[in-house]
Amino acid sequence: MQTRDISELQDFCKKIRRHIIEMITEAKSGHPGGSLSAVETLAVLYLEVMRHDSKNPQWKERDRFILGKGHACPVLYATMAECGYTPVDQLKTLRKMGSIYQGHPDRRFIPALEASTGSLGQGLSVAIGMGLAARMDGNPSRTYVMLGDGEIQEGQIWEAAMFASFHKLDNIVAIVDYNKIQLDGFVKDIMELEPLADKWRSFGWHVVDADGHDLLALRRAFAEAEATKGKPTVLLAHTIKGKGVSFMENNPKFHGMAPTKDECEKALKELA
C-alpha cells in the first residue's frame, strides 16, 4: 500500500464528487446517490491500495476492481479518468450515444474495465473466477468487488459467498457500500439485511466494519483484508447515500434521479 497525504485524498474525493454531479446533470439521468456514497472507497483503492498502471491496463499482475453495482458507474468513470485510464474531458458525455461512458460499465467501450456489469448480483462471482485463476497461476493479483446493499438481496451473492469461503479464496475482497437506501426506499423497509455482519460471518467470511467515508479507517480495513489468510474478507462500508451534497444525503429520491441545473449549481457550491 502506497499511502498519501490525507489532504490529497480529500481533494481527490471532492474533485470526483464534482465530476459525478456535473456528469449526471449533463446526462439528465443516472444514479447520483450511490455514486457519491462510494467516493472514498474508490479513492483509497485506486490511489493507495491497488497495484495498477493506467499506462498498462492489461498488466497481468494488476489488482482488479469490479463495480457490481454498475449503476454507480459515474464514480468509477471519474476515478479511472483521474487516474489516467480514460479522458477526463469526455466525462460529460456520460450516457450519450457513442460515449465510452455508457449508462452501465461496458468493456466494449472501455477495455480497462474488468467486467461489464449492470445486472445486479453477478460481480462477486466474476471476481471469484479471477481470484481462482490468480491463485492457480501463483499470481499476486488481488480482486476487489463493490456490491450495493440492495444488490446483496440477490440469491447469487450468497451462492458466491458460500463458494469463496469453501474454496478459501483470500485474494478477493468484497465491499458492501452500505448506504441503507435502495431504489424504492430504505433497505430496512424493502428487505432488511441485518444482522449483516453475522450473515457474512456465518458464510465463512472475515468481516470488517468501517465508516466508508473515513479515509484512515478504509486504509486500515484494506490492510486488514490483505493480512487475512485462508478466507475472503468483506468490508461493510457504512456510508451515507448522496454523501457530500446536503439535500441528497439520505434522500431516496436521489438514488436514480439527476439533479436539475439549479440543484447542480447548489451542489457544486457545497463541493467548492
Binding site: A115, S125, I128, G129, M130, L132, A133, A160, F163
Partner: peptide, 12 residues
C-alpha cells in the same frame, strides 16, 4: 448461476 459467472471470471 454462480458457476456460470465464475466461468466468466476465469475466462477474463
Amino acid at each position: 448461476a454462480n458457476m456460470v459467472a465464475i466461468g466468466a471470471g476465469l475466462a477474463s
